[in-house]
Design a protein around this nucleic acid. Sequence first.
DNA 1: AGCCATGCACCG
DNA 2: CGGTGCATGGCT
Length: 128
Amino acid sequence: HYWAGGFDSEIQRIHRTTRPALNPLFEKLLTASDADIRLGRIVIPKKYAETFFPEVTESKGLMMNILDIENKEWKFNFRFWPNCGSRTYVLEGFREFLAVKKLQAGDTVTFYRVEPGGTMAIGTRKTS
DNA sequence: AGCCATGCACCG
DNA sequence: CGGTGCATGGCT
């Protein structure tokens, strides 16, 4: 059970010893629509979107480069939908990420802050 | 009160 | 007629 403790935590250990700190921000338990490959977009809970993501004013959103746990760079569009005077935040461009990581509903995606610099990183965990 | 999972209208 | 962009409604 070499990987006991989880893939993410092992990678975090590697990153901590060889790279700047990788601080967990929040997790998203993927819903059926998050994991739907035809949609290719996931909802970011408003609380976390407005706490941890860049401020976004235009509805079309902004492109973000996010590293995964293998240092592969992914480009996602962070935007919002107007919703009853509020906002629903989404990350678009998730189709290939879902496919490559073989994610399904019930799996978890974790967002990290890479220090210094404050860029974001992303990890995945299958249902346990 | 209002988020957010998902339905769905309508735009191209 | 497929997806975008938003609306709806279950749920807390």
